[in-house]
Design a binder for these strands. Structure first.
Length: 875
RNA sequence: GCGAAAGUGGCGGAACUGGUAGACGCACUGGAUUUAGGUUCCAGCGGGGUAACCCGUGCGGGUUCGAGUCCCGCCUUUCGCACCA
């Protein structure tokens, strides 16, 4: 055994050992693991080319789950793959004039190589890249099945259009309403596309997220519940007034949805989206309406932007009739009404809705109070109008419906409307169908053929996959597939005449909706096979909170579609979900005269402290002059604060990197990277090695542990060790690995104290075996080598499958307990009592304590005893 | 704007179910070893006070014998908002 800890040597030995065993290849029903399967998986990464420490944190987390569960006796499988389609490859293509396929595949190779030193337990035999035809053909196949069942359908969609580059822009590519490359003001444009009817599953998606999925974080469940957004309300029709009838050339009605039918008598205007047919018809007649529609057509489609923009409106000059009073109500076009949500129209009740109030106030529309509070606080909301009263209350000014409470009013009005055929109760979801068409090259081709004679024709299953040509290089001016005759030209499967292929590709969320099922059978000749039934549903899914809604909702939806096609038997893909936090890093900059920031790498900066350890200033090493501390930020290239694993691992080893990213903070929260803190963890591993080296003979020759013969000092240390273990096992289960690392540090500190006692050898032998196995999931290399060197492998087997240690009952028991004594809830003393002492004796001992007596200057009113913890004396 | 979280020493954080605030580590200070730097080891380390003690978990209220933890109202930061992944 070497005297000095040499991480490079240790890690080479351990990895060689695992490679020789092919240690992470998983197979179904492996008889070595009678407890059954455990499938743990991290959300697949986008192959951007560089792995930073943040990735390492995420996959270390995954790896700790793997090793802990395997040590607990499960047949664990953890795969890895690549979310290989998407926009960044096209941007790289524009920048570097390299085909996205080539760039992506080179990145995958790079990243895979960067994973190697970390010693992750990935089963690489299951690797999947979503840009491989063998994968995306099944996106196409399932899409065809969805077309057949009607889950997939064609409809127009609104996109961001860059009029200079003549291309559709992603929301990300719209900066302040302008195209990021051209600078042109972005316009909304309507084009046809494909949708998946996720709303068909709204009720089931909602029900399970509310009452099932108990292995998911509650905040994720809440976010999904709110995203689906079920609301009970009424659909109400306002029949066209003669002017509207004339313009629309029909006697229809303007339909709205509201959850506040009780306020119907307060509806003083109607607001429609700028794209609503009535607005468009009015625009043909009135130039000012047309101008307003055009104004609304500028600007982006993002909801956050729409919701924060100034509320603007324009009277259309048209009217509809109130369904119950028959009074004409003015129709306005408004920029805050969304065409894609509900009916694209709302009734405006300014007295009882803040947004309507703001709108009415600005446009001098009438405000009519129709609800008063039950307490009388808002009985009189007359002019001057200050605010809307949006709480539930009692109806007023509502004819025969006055004097009713909210629900009674809604019920009565709904009945009245239904009698007239002008409305009914209805459930409305906020959730919208999923538009999957992207006017982009680097994605799964949508398997559709356009024929002049037959129209839109699906590609026959036997012709799948529709292979994406891999040699095209986008130049920023639209989808290069539109110019690629080899791809475009085809024959119509129905009439056999020449036809054109669809050039839109699928949203990359399609790729990530089921890859985790393909990992189970990556070489299957169908979409999935029986092996998926063995591994799925996944036991532990790990990924960022940013995916709380979209990806996780799409994956749940996709699973249900597959279930309804008879492909899988389960309805939910992920039993447990863990949302990991981001790794952040310090950043430093200097500003030049023009306010332009120059960002320094942390390594170029020296932090200075005062004598109390408070950081006072940071200076650049190059000139000794101050730089500005920019705080702790997300790692990003532009801020030069990306921590790269390569050089760190070379200096300190993968185990230090792994242990530090686990130690830095709770795994579900963001944590900053710190070089010096990481070195502290390295010191711990060095200390561990040195301790094992110094005590190797004592451990090797230790007699068996006899608890009764330990002196009281060693007994106490043994109690500590097993308490730390007890806590660590709890923390392993709740995925709080930062405190597991702390526990191993405490164990080493305790063993260090024990080692001074000449009789400690049996305890050291037990303690080190506990310590190594507890530490192993975080730092497998050094744990493996020490395990072998100290002879534990011969006794307990390879560390990969050595069972997790369990705390001994005889160690957790104590003869004496230290109790805290409080007076009126404030800590005033401590007493030591026998473990079996009864409550009366304990209370007496507490009252007898001299520190306590000082504060008991009034009669004792009550004494509260919390078993094993404290006594509180109330005076 | 809407939805979801987070806020504890100089720093990262600990305190699982209301019950000893600050475990473990970093930084810093003093000392030992070393020619020196680094390493290693020992001790100290929330604020105030000679002390007894007092004050302290973003801010303001409340519940409780007892609140970092529960409730109400604010402030700040982070994530998501449907074409970034």
């Amino acid at each position: 055994m070497d005297e000095i800890y040499d991480p490079a040597a240790v890690e080479a030995v351990a990895q060689q050992h695992w490679r020789a065993l092919d240690a992470y290849r998983s197979k179904e029903n492996d008889p070595r693991f009678p407890k059954g399967k455990f499938y743990v998986c991290s959300m697949l990464p986008y192959p951007s080319g560089k792995l930073h420490m943040g990735h390492m944190r995420n996959y270390t987390l995954n790896d700790v789950v793997y090793r802990f569960m395997r040590s607990s006796g499960y047949n664990v499988m953890t795969p890895m793959g690549w979310d290989a389609f998407g926009l960044p490859a096209e941007n790289a293509a524009i920048d570097k004039k390299v085909a996205p396929a080539k760039w992506t595949r080179a990145n995958i190779a790079d990243m895979k190589a960067q994973f190697a030193p970390m010693g992750f337990a990935f089963d690489w035999s299951r690797e999947v890249a979503t840009c491989d035809p063998s994968y995306y053909r099944w996106n196409q196949w399932l899409f065809l099945q969805m077309l057949k069942s009607g889950v997939a359908y064609r409809k127009t969609q609104i996109v961001n259009w860059d009029p200079i580059d003549n291309t559709v822009l992603a929301n990300e590519q719209v900066v302040d309403g302008k195209g990021w490359r051209s600078g042109a003001t972005v316009e909304k444009r309507e084009i046809p596309g494909y949708y998946l009817a996720i709303t068909r599953y709204a009720e089931e998606l909602l029900e399970t997220v509310k009452t099932g999925l108990d292995g998911w974080p509650t905040q994720v469940r809440a976010m999904q519940e709110n995203w689906i957004g079920r609301s009970e309300g009424c659909e109400i029709s306002f029949p066209f007034a003669p002017d509207t009838r004339a313009v629309m050339e029909t006697d229809g009605a303007l339909k709205v949805f509201t959850t506040r039918a009780d306020t119907l008598f307060g509806a003083t205007f109607l607001a429609v989206a700028a794209e609503h047919p009535i607005a468009l018809a009015a625009g043909k007649r009135a130039p000012r309406v047309a101008a307003f529609i055009e104004e609304c057509a500028r600007g982006a489609v993002m909801e956050a932007e729409l919701a924060t923009q100034e509320k603007k409106g324009m009277a259309t000059g048209l009217h509809a009739l109130h369904p119950l009073t028959g009074q004409p109500v003015e129709i306005w076009a408004a920029n805050y009404v969304l065409m894609g949500y509900g009916e694209g129209a709302v009734m405006g009740v300014p007295a009882h809705d803040e947004r309507d109030f703001e709108f009415a106030h600005k446009n001098r529309l009438p405000i009519v109070q129709v609800v008063k509070s039950k307490t009388g606080a808002y009985d009189d909301v007359r002019e001057p109008w200050i605010a809307a009263y949006s709480d539930y209350g009692i109806t007023v000014n509502s004819g025969e419906f006055s004097g009713l409470e909210f629900q009674a009013a809604v019920d009565a009005i709904a009945v009245a409307l239904e009698k007239k055929g002008l409305g009914k109760k209805r459930i409305q979801y906020r959730l919208r169908d999923w538009g999957i068409s992207r006017q982009r090259y680097w994605g799964t081709p949508i398997p559709i053929i356009h024929c002049d004679a037959c129209g839109v024709v699906p590609v026959p299953e036997k012709d799948l996959p529709v292979v994406l040509p891999e040699d095209l290089v986008p130049d920023g001016s639209g989808n290069p597939l539109n110019k690629d005759e080899r791809f475009l030209a085809c024959t119509c499967p129905q009439c056999g005449k020449g036809a054109r292929r669809e050039t839109d590709t699928m949203d990359t969320f399609v790729d990530s909706s089921w890859y985790y099922m393909r990992y189970c059978c990556p070489d299957a000749s169908s979409m999935i096979d029986g092996r998926t039934d063995y591994w799925m549903p996944m036991d532990q899914y790990i990924g960022g909170i940013e995916h709380a809604v979209l990806h996780l909702l799409y994956a749940r939806f996709w699973t249900k579609v597959m279930r309804d096609l008879g492909l899988v038997k389960f309805s939910e893909p992920f039993k447990q979900l863990f949302t990991q936090g981001m790794l952040l890093a310090h950043c430093y900059y200097r500003e030049d005269a023009n306010g332009k920031k120059r960002w320094f790498y942390p390594a170029e900066v020296e932090q200075q402290f005062d004598e109390r350890g408070t950081p006072i200033s940071a200076v650049a090493k190059e000139d000794g002059k101050p730089v500005i501390y920019g705080g702790i930020e997300k790692m990003s290239k532009s801020k030069n604060n990306v921590v790269e694993p390569g050089s760190f691992i070379e200096r300190f080893g993968a185990d230090t990197a792994r242990a530090f990213v686990m130690f830095a903070g709770p795994p579900d929260q963001s944590a900053p990277w710190s070089d010096s803190s990481a070195e502290g963890v390295h010191r711990f591993l060095k200390k561990l090695w040195a301790f094992c080296y110094q005590n190797r003979e004592r451990i090797a020759t230790a007699p068996a542990l006899v608890v009764a013969s330990l002196d009281s000092g060693l007994k106490k240390i043994r109690h500590q060790l097993h308490s730390f273990l007890h806590q660590a096992l709890f923390d392993f289960q709740r995925i709080q690995y930062n405190t597991v690392v702390s526990a191993t540090m405490k164990m080493l500190n305790a063993l260090d104290t024990a080692a001074e006692n000449p009789a400690a050898a049996p305890l050291l032998r037990e303690g080190v075996s506990i310590l190594l196995r507890t530490l192993y999931p975080m730092t497998p290399h050094v744990a493996h080598v020490l395990w072998v060197e100290l002879g534990y492998a011969k006794e307990l087997g390879d560390l990969l499958d050595a069972p997790m240690p369990q705390p001994a009952a005889d160690a957790l028991q104590q003869d004496e307990l230290e109790l805290v004594v409080q007076v009126n809830g404030k800590l005033r003393g401590r007493v030591i009592v026998a473990a079996q002492a009864d409550e009366t004796a304990i209370k007496e001992a507490a009252l007898a304590d001299e520190h306590v007596r000082k504060f008991v200057d009034k009669p004792v009113r009550k004494v509260i005893y919390v078993k094993g913890k404290l006594v509180n004396i109330v005076v």
